[in-house]
Each structure stands twice: as C-alpha cells, then as structure tokens.
Design a protein around this nucleic acid. Structure first.
Lengths: 142, 142
DNA sequence: GGTGACGCTCTCCTTTAGGTGAGTATGGAT
DNA sequence: ATCCATACTCACCTAAAGGAGAGCGTCACC
C-alpha cells in the first residue's frame, strides 16, 4: 500500500502523476536511514553541544548548562543522553557526593563536529546576506 | 534581570553558582544570531531540499514533492518559502494554466549546500557506527 | 458541461517539543 | 539537626510542529 507523498487535489482525481523524473534515486533503505540520521544529528542543540564540548574538551553538567544559553535542564539531559546513545560523547560518573559527571567527545563526535565546522563558518560568513535577503523579501510582500 | 539557564534545585538555595568557567565566550549578540541561523538552517527538510535541488538543478513543485519522501505539501510549501526568504532559492512563476513554478538554487543556497556536504558524507560513512552504538547502549540499559 | 492539471491555501486536529517547578539521594560541613 | 551541592527525574502544562483533507482558479480537453 504505497502512500503518495501527500493527498491528491481532490480525492478521486489524479490517480497517477506523470513520471517526468524517477520517484527517487537509488537505495531507498539507506537513503531513509541517512535522512533519519541527518534529522537526528542536524538538531540545533546537538550542534551547539558539539561545538562547546569541542571547545572545552571536558565539561560537567552545570558547566555545560552555562555554556548553552537558553537551554533547559531537561533539554540538556535529553540531548546529552541522545548523544551518548549515538556514540558522540562519553559520560563518566564519579561515585562521589555531591555527584560529579563528566562529558567528553568521542572520536565519532569529534568527527561530526569537524563535519559541521563548514556550516558554522558558512553561518558566520553569510549572516549578513541572509538578513539582507529577509528584509528584501519582507519589504516586497510587506 | 538575568535569567539563569534553568531553575535552581529548590527555590531559596543556590543563589549563585561558583564560576569555574566564564559564563560565555565573546560577543553575545553575534553568537545568538549565529545560533539562531544555525537553528533555522540546520533543519531536516531544508537540508534535504538543498540536496535534491543541487542534484536536479531545477524543480517544479510536484517534482520536488516526489523527491522528498514523507514530506507533506504544507511542509514543502513552508520550507520552500522560508528558503526563498533566506535567499537560498529563487521561485519563478510562469503565468500559464495550469500554473508552472520553478525553483532553483541561488549562489548562497549552493554555498550552504556545499557546507552541508561534509555532514552528508559523515552521515553516510558513520551510519553503521551510530547504529552499533545505539544497540550497545540499548542493550546496557535494556 | 464535467473533469483534470498544478500549486497552492485554509481549516481542523493530533502529536511532539519543550518549559516550569518541584523532589531525590548522599555525605560532609556548620 | 540542618543545610548545601550536584545531577538529575518526574509530573504537569502550554505552544508549536506538522499531518489530513478539502477547496480554489483557470483553461484545455473530451
């Protein structure tokens, strides 16, 4: 039961659309997995966490929180757990009181950070262009 | 009135946390803008749209939809509008019936696509590692 | 004159994201 | 005895994301 990408104009028409371009490129399984992984990894907080951890080497929970402005405790825990599960960070619990937990990047995490590096640079370089474009767009449609 | 990143343990204690690491790096305004732009641009659909458009050069609305599996019509319109506003794509409307609208990358869009390229490669290369890590993690916590 | 094509937009409605404020465990310091 | 620190977790709640399905406008066609 193959689902069409979205509902047809009105339900009984357009049973089929002319296939001007093949429906998708190659291996749909791998493609889906990669898209999925991208969705997970191209997350704002994940990217920022990667950044600050790469910068500081090792961070404790509250230090982390202070570096990531605007994140809630819950989100931070969640992001960090997810990253741990994905093998981006290691989480070391020192069994002392008060608790001491240290996070550091794995090799995998560092490599993703490096891959994102280009995007950060792009963002810094093109911030002005994007803002200008937005203003122009908004002025046109006003 | 500076807000703390999240609530203190119980409200009347911990008025202040020792500042072992300076609260943030440098220019907070630029940093915030860049983080914001990252949040906008590091969006799953934006990344995928960038990819397929880079691959096909020029796409009409329904062609686009067919390339982006699982996206709803609403999301596609929204993503495309946003990208147009940000100056990533141009939208050309041919005043014919039935309507014909073509999307293509701008230089800015292409440069972002190039910046993301590293992330795609990373995702393809490290898919297996991430999956292995997830399995190990889930097995441990079960 | 009914239907279909295209690229939307509009109205619901459900799901998810994410914030808030509190609680918990533990041992050392006061 | 009480307090405090840390790194959480939990319950609750609101806002935002995003899906489903329909409708629209216009012309060419059968």
């Amino acid at each position: 039961m193959s689902r069409l990408p979205f509902n047809e104009p009105t339900i009984q028409r357009a049973r089929r659309i002319a296939e001007t371009i093949p429906p998708a490129e190659c291996d749909p399984r791998v493609e889906a997995l990669v898209n999925d992984l991208i969705g997970r990894v191209a997350d704002k907080w994940t990217m920022i966490a990667l950044e600050v951890l790469a910068e500081h080497g090792e961070l404790r929970f509250t230090q982390f929180a202070r570096q990531m402005r605007g994140i809630s405790q819950k989100m931070l825990t969640q992001t960090l757990r997810q990253m741990e599960r994905d093998g981006m960070v290691t989480r070391t619990v020192h069994p002392v009181v008060p608790p001491r937990v240290e996070y550091r990047l794995t090799e995998l995490g560092a490599s993703l950070g490096a891959a994102f590096c280009g995007v950060w640079i792009w963002a810094e370089e093109n911030l002005a262009k994007v803002e200008a474009s937005r203003e122009a767009f908004d002025a046109k449609t006003e």
